[in-house]
Design a protein around this nucleic acid. Structure first.
Lengths: 137, 137
DNA sequence: TACAATTACTACTTAAAGGTAGAATTAAAA
DNA sequence: TTTTAATTCTACCTTTAAGTAGTAATTGTA
């Protein structure tokens, strides 16, 4: 019961970027070293974040990554969506699509409250909110 | 963010077994067909449940599986433990072992409440509790 | 223009989860 | 004692996640 490595890395990367005061360009080498994430895996993740429209990349010398949207407009759930890792409304403990109107799984009722809290945490935490919170490295 | 297939199957199997009034022997063919779980995969899971001491198996003709412990003494978390899928105290959203006294991750505080609810759900739901609840097939 | 520093792309490898096949073992029943 | 219905074991196959390698494309700077 946990997030994929990709999701965890992506949140850590973006939260670290959000920590930086000016919206300066940050390059993959610096991010990989600072956050102890394998360089090649990090660039793969960054490319997905670019495709998803969360960050933009500047190629070539002096290039790097910066946010495309305001950090207040990027929710943790947006990041999880990219890696198919968010908590869906129709998702139950015993499988997505298993529970429905007719048939509720044995843990259906117990699951409601933690599910809603998880969704709340992911959907209502923006990168701006968590910038400055905790340590990122 | 979801349980492994093995954990989901195992919970469904044991919850279904707990539904049966007398503690009659249930065989793999019946369980697999009733619960729509691949037969060979189900037997693999059952063998793990036997090794973990949750159920006993009777081999040979007229054999099958039955509970070793009382259903009131088997918690959902016991099942998740077998498949390394339970929510550990030290587990945070951004990785097991990442957060500690010195360094709390950016989502550490937000994670506390959903984590405790998840743990509560898994640790305080016994098979007896969920027997009869919801539909299992 | 040449160079160096950067991201992007394609393809591969490794590890783990999920699932399958077949034969061995067991034990009740005929 | 033979047959039959059951679990168990070993080994394999498939899919997905995780991670790596090499090269192409891009672009600022000297």
């Amino acid at each position: 019961m946990q997030l994929s490595n990709s999701s965890q890395y992506a949140i850590r990367i973006l939260a670290y970027m959000a920590d930086q005061k000016d919206s300066r360009l940050m390059n993959a080498t610096e991010l990989a070293e600072t956050l102890s994430i394998p360089y090649k895996f990090l660039t793969k993740i960054m490319t997905e974040l670019v495709k998803a429209g969360l960050v933009v990349s500047i190629r070539g010398r002096e290039g790097g990554y910066k946010f495309k949207k305001k950090t207040s407009e990027i929710m943790v759930s947006d990041i999880l969506d990219i890696f198919n890792d968010s908590v869906k409304d129709e998702q139950c403990v015993l499988g997505i699509g298993f529970c429905n109107g007719m048939c509720k799984c044995a843990l259906h009722d117990q699951w409601m409250e933690p599910k809603h809290l998880l969704q709340k945490m992911f959907r209502e935490s923006s990168l701006e909110d968590i910038a400055g919170e905790g340590c990122k490295i």
